[in-house]
Simulated scan of single mutants.
Amino acid sequence: MTLLTVLWLMGCGEGQPDREDDTLAVSQALGGDDMEGYARAVEPREFRFPQDHVAHPEYRNEWWYVTGNLDDAEGRRFGFQITFFRFALSPTPPESESTWATNQGWMAHLAVTDVNGDRHRALERFSRGAAGLAGAELDPFRVWLDDWELGAEAGNDFPWRLVAAEGDLALDLRLEPLKDKVFQGDRGLSQKSPEPGNASYYFSMTRLDTEGTLSLGGREYSVSGLSWMDREWSTSVLGESQVGWDWFSLQLDDGHDVMVYELRLEDGGVDPLSKGLWVEPDSQHQVIPHDAFELQVLRTWTSPAGSTYPVAWRLRLLEQERDLEIRAVREDQEMDLTVRYWEGAVDVFEAGEPAGRGFVEMTAY
């Protein structure tokens, strides 16, 4: 899909939008400096549920992000990712009665790694948040883009059901939390750079019991395992000197969960606002400041597109006295989509023994 097609699909006007206007609108929404009129994440807030499961259109960016590791009864291993992204293209909706008119653009990414089959599939879709094409709503809760959907089976409570299909790839999964929600940063305010407002509201469900079916290549598998869900919304996040991030979500076999991320700087350094979260089996959790963990790259891989990514790491959690090795289940898990990044399933080892599983996301390589 060309960039012009993406811009047209995310157009904020009615009918057939003007492509030059849409190009400017998307540029401002995703990377511009004009934030006037949008809400900003500047201080901790009281989270409200189920309301905070749906959209916050007064902010520019938002996502619902689910990753997981699944197995079938014979031990065939799969990793999966689905993310629904919402982008506000202007602070207020257009003044139009057209059912096509909206200031909201939507994008969704879907990927499956078939570990035993040695393949990785990545797909994307785009739509405008109008005419029922994409959106988020309550009673019952659901977020959707076309027929890709995450939502409650009844009302707004769990279990949630995740369904997505395209071609010979399909997911139909049931998600049930095994732990309470945890709030990242300062009570859910996750500061990403020193400038006021360069922060997000961010909570996670770090351990979701997951079961259902996964179809790939004309074959259906009954699968089960664990998933992780992140919810985040903001208007501005990265500072001028920040170029990307490396993000890790790990579910350890002893019941602990850990998330860490490093914000990479233009000069090759790491921003001190990088941090993480340690989650106990009973859902108690604490922030891991940047000086309380050490992340060392052990091995890299260069993609056909020319980007070189880390694919094995050593992670030392100093306060928890844990020394973990993280390895990609396969090196080629690059999301070669409109926005190229690496997102994939990993294994965790401790003292040379298997200790858990997780997912890693790396941008701007």
Rank of each mutant, 00 (worst) to 15 (best):
Val329Glu: 09
Leu263Ser: 04
Gly269Pro: 11
Gly151Cys: 02
Phe126Tyr: 13
Val270Gly: 11
Gln81Gly: 09
Phe293Ser: 01
Leu337Phe: 10
Ser96Thr: 10
Ala355Trp: 10
Ala152Thr: 07
Glu43Gln: 13
Ala199Met: 00
Gly105Glu: 00
Gly239Ser: 06
Gln104Arg: 11
Tyr201Gln: 07
Phe293Asp: 01
Ala351Trp: 03
Glu43Asn: 02
Val270Asn: 08
Thr308Ala: 02
Arg219Ile: 03
Pro194Arg: 03
Met1Glu: 14
Phe141Trp: 01
Gly167Phe: 01
Ser204Ile: 02
Arg330Gln: 14
Gly344His: 09
Gly129Ala: 02
Arg187Pro: 00
Leu175Ile: 07
Leu138Tyr: 08
Gly185Thr: 09
Leu273Ala: 06
Pro272Thr: 05
Met205Ala: 10
Gly269Ser: 14
Leu150Phe: 11
Val223Glu: 06
Val348Tyr: 02
Thr210Gly: 11
Arg322Tyr: 04
Arg327Asn: 05
Gln16Gly: 12
Asp257Ala: 14
Gly197Phe: 02
Asp118Cys: 03
Glu262Ala: 15
Pro194Tyr: 03
Gln251Cys: 08
Val243Lys: 15
Glu350His: 08
Leu324His: 12
Glu232Val: 00
Asp323Ala: 07
Met1Ile: 14
Phe359Lys: 06
Val329Arg: 15
Val258Trp: 00
Leu252Phe: 08
Val329Leu: 15
Trp228Leu: 02
Leu263Tyr: 12
Ala73Glu: 15
Glu334Phe: 13
Gly255Leu: 05
Leu9Ile: 02
His56Asp: 00
Glu211Asp: 14
Asp230Gly: 12
Pro272Asp: 07
Glu353Gly: 08
Cys12Tyr: 00
Ala134Trp: 00
Gly268Ser: 11
Ser90Cys: 09
Tyr38Arg: 02
Leu123Tyr: 05
Arg231Asp: 04
Phe349Asn: 11
Thr300Tyr: 00
Pro91Ala: 15
Glu321Cys: 07
Val163Ala: 05
Trp301Arg: 07
